[in-house]
Structures are given as structure tokens and as C-alpha cells.
Amino acid sequence: MILRAVTLLCLFAGAAQAQMTTAEAARDAVRMLEESAQALSEARGGRERVKALTEIVKGYETGLAALRDGMRAASLKEAQLTEDLQARDKEISRLLGVLQSISRAPAPVTLLHPSGPTGTARAGMLLSDVTPGLKARADALRADLEEVQALRLLQAQSAAKLQEGLEGAQEARTALSKAVADRTDLPRRFVENPVQTAVLIAATETLEGFASGLSTIAEDEAPGSLPDISHRKGKLALPVQGQLLRRAGEADAAGVRRPGLLIATGPQAVVTTPTAATIRYAGPLLNYGLVAILEPQADTLFIFAGLEAVFGQTGQVLPAGDPLGLMGGELRTDVSLSGDGAGNARPETLYIEVRELNQPVDPQDWFRTTDKG
């Protein structure tokens, strides 16, 4: 699986040559896969294997996104050239007619003029001036037609590679899920009381209310907390690859405003821990779907909502970069031509909320983000 992944992603740069940033992303994915494959071959414990597989899944996500961008660029360019050629249909027909008539006429007849040698000389001069221009236009037309054919071939080849990449990504996710389930080397700060958890969920009407009662579900909790990470504010990477859709406090289509970020992700994208943290809760909650609540330091909570699957158990301590879960959605081979890379490419959304002393704060105070679009 690893060798095939490296070979596959080496082709992404070729499929994405229309955009240098896309090719660079593909090369980054190849490097990430090579490093991960080496780490996987050297991994002995469950934690090392989980880390290596996590990087492999991320590498697939980066490479597949690069391939999709390349296919989108090729499709748009092919459509643009085809439309341009169709708009110039009459001009092209006249050009081809002139070229054909010149090629069919014998050279002496072409150069002969009724007015005699002077007219013939003038006609020859005009023809010598016109012919390079006709040839240049014919060469440009030939180049455009060849480019359309090449782009169509590239799209057909890329579609096959995309399908192969999706299958490899699914294999990597399956292996990751199994490795997470098999590991037994994670430290645990407390044991969850399932009865208290059920009571808290039943009595909860808001995310704030649930967060305020999290201490009641912990039993035999070890004293102290993880080291303070306040110095890393604004430097943490987002837990998932995606695009920022809404900032804290921005209204959605229904006019609802939430204190967290909304990130658009690809289907089945892996969500990782931005820093070492204790799992305070993992499971369904209200209308948020599956929710994972992490405590990176005392009195601070990172809340991730909208996952399809959650890894780990309440009370465990996860290291930085560990897989926390997977987004939902269906892996598809079709490519959106919206141009912004969103749309079908990123149909899932992850909600991120940060609370300090159980008060919401702007997640962008903690996480590095980019503007939408």
C-alpha cells in the first residue's frame, strides 16, 4: 500500500502542472508519505504505528486535493479552449480554405498575374507577406487543438489515478482505525462514570451547560493537569485540513451565530489533536453530532463537533498530532469545477469552539487560520 501511494502521488505533480502551487502540494505529499512509510517500517509500539498511519492518511488527503485541483484546472482550460475554438469556427473555416487553395494550386499558376510581370511581382510580395501570418495562425490553431486533446487525455488518466488514490486512502483509514483500537499504551487521568454521563446529557440543553458539568463524570481523577500552553496561543495548527467557512460570531444562513469556527473539510478527513490533551468527553451531544471535548490545560476546553467517528476514550491523554476521529461523507471521483476548491471537494464541516473558565473565546486566539476562499 505504501509503495503504491508514493508512486501514485508522484504523478500528482504532472496532473497539476497548470498550477505551480498544486504541484508543490503534491510534492509535499510525496515527501510526507515517504517519511511516514519509513516511520511505519520502524514502528514497534502501538503509539508509533498510529502516528505513522495518521501521517499517511494526511499525505493521501494532501495528494488527492492536489490531484483534484489539477483535474479542475485541466477541465476549465479544456472548456475555455473549446469555447474559443467554437467562437472562431467561421474564421478557422476561411483560414483552412485559403491554406488548402494555396496548397492545391501549382507554384507557377499561383505566381502568375494577368497584368504581367509587374503585377506578378506585386502579387508575389503580397503573398510573401501574407503567408507567414497564415502559417502563424495555422500553427496557433494546431497548438490549441493539440492542447485540447492533451487535456482530455490528462483528465481521463487523472480520473483513473483519483480512483486508485481513493482506494489507497480508504485502506490507510481502515488500518488507522484498527491501530487505534489495538493500542493499549495511552495514559489515563480518570475513569468515566457512565451513569453520571447519561444524567448530564439528559439534563443538558446547551453546549455551555454540558461543559460546565464535565467534572461530574470523572472518577478517580489524578491530581494536577497537563503543562500550561498559553504561550502557544495563535500558533496551533487546525485539527483538520480544510478551509475556514465562518468565524466566531458570524451568522449562518439561518441567522444563527455561534462562538466557534466552522471549517469545511473533505469527506472522511482525519481530525487530529492540536496539542497533548485529556479527552473530557467523546460521543453524541445535542444536535452537534459526534463531539470530542479536549482539555489541553486546566480551565481550557477545545470542542470539536460534527465528526463521523471518534477515536479514544473519555479520560485518556492523547499526544499532540494523535488521531481524534474522522469526518463523514462519501469519497467520490467526480471533480467540482467551481474554481474555489470548495463545493463537492469539501462537503463536510467541523465546528471548533474554545472555552476558558467555561466562557467562549475566539478560537482564532489559539489556532492559525486562513481567510475564506
Results as ranks from 00 to 15, higher is better:
Gln149Val: 13
Glu295Cys: 12
Asp252Glu: 02
Phe302Trp: 13
Asp362Tyr: 01
Pro227Tyr: 13
Ala181Phe: 12
Glu48Leu: 02
Ala172Glu: 00
Gln100Asp: 15
Leu95Arg: 05
Ala105Cys: 05
Arg247Met: 07
Leu262Phe: 03
Thr273Lys: 04
Ala222Ser: 06
Thr216Gln: 12
Thr110Gly: 00
Gly325Thr: 13
Thr120Pro: 00
Gly224Asp: 06
Gln170Tyr: 13
Pro296Ser: 08
Arg152Asn: 14
Glu35Arg: 07
Glu35Ala: 08
Val195Pro: 04
Pro323His: 08
Met71Thr: 08
Leu153Lys: 07
Ala169Glu: 13
Gly70Lys: 03
Ala150Gly: 10
Gly306Tyr: 04
Ala254Met: 05
Leu40Cys: 02
Arg88Ser: 11
Arg280Phe: 06
Glu250Tyr: 11
Leu262Cys: 02
Phe367Met: 00
Phe302Ile: 11
Glu91Pro: 02
Leu162Gln: 04
Leu3Cys: 05
Asp299Val: 12
Ala218Gly: 02
Arg47Asp: 01
Ala140Tyr: 10
Ala65Ser: 14
Gly339Cys: 15
Ala5Cys: 15
Ile352Glu: 04
Leu3Arg: 06
Val310His: 02
Lys135Tyr: 11
Leu8Met: 11
Ile229Ser: 01
Ala282Tyr: 00
Pro360Asn: 11
Leu307Trp: 01
Thr272Glu: 15
Asp340His: 09
Ala218Phe: 03
Leu126Pro: 15
Pro267Met: 13
Thr300Glu: 08
Ser101Gly: 14
Pro239Cys: 03
Cys10Lys: 14
Met71Glu: 05
Glu295Pro: 05
Ser158Asp: 14
Ala43Cys: 12
Arg122Ile: 15
Asn344Ile: 15
Lys235Phe: 04
Ala16Asn: 04
Ile217Tyr: 07
Asp28Val: 01
Pro132Phe: 07
Pro239Phe: 01
Arg188Leu: 08
Ile293Tyr: 07
Leu200His: 08
Gln170Met: 10
Val335Met: 10
Arg4Ser: 12
His231Cys: 07
Gln155Met: 11
Lys90Trp: 13
Ala65Glu: 07
Asp334Glu: 11
Gly213Phe: 11
Ile201Tyr: 08
Leu126Cys: 14
Thr369Met: 10
Val271Phe: 02
Met20Thr: 11
Gly224Gln: 01
Val148Met: 06
Ala251Met: 11
Asp322Ile: 03
Ala15Gly: 11
Gln243Val: 09
Val310Met: 03
Ala136Arg: 14
Pro239Ser: 09
Leu286Ala: 03
Asp228Leu: 08
Ser103Gln: 14
Ala253Ile: 00
Gly14Cys: 10
Thr314Pro: 06
Leu262Glu: 01
Thr265Arg: 06
Arg183Trp: 02
Gly255Ala: 02
Ile303Pro: 07
Gly260Pro: 06
Leu40Thr: 03
Pro323Ala: 07
Met1His: 06
Val291Arg: 04
Arg4Ala: 12
Glu24His: 09
Asp334Gly: 14
Val310Ser: 12
Gly260Arg: 01
Ala74Lys: 00
Ile201Cys: 05
Asp139Gln: 10
Arg47Tyr: 00
Ala269Val: 09
Glu295Asp: 14
Ala305Val: 04
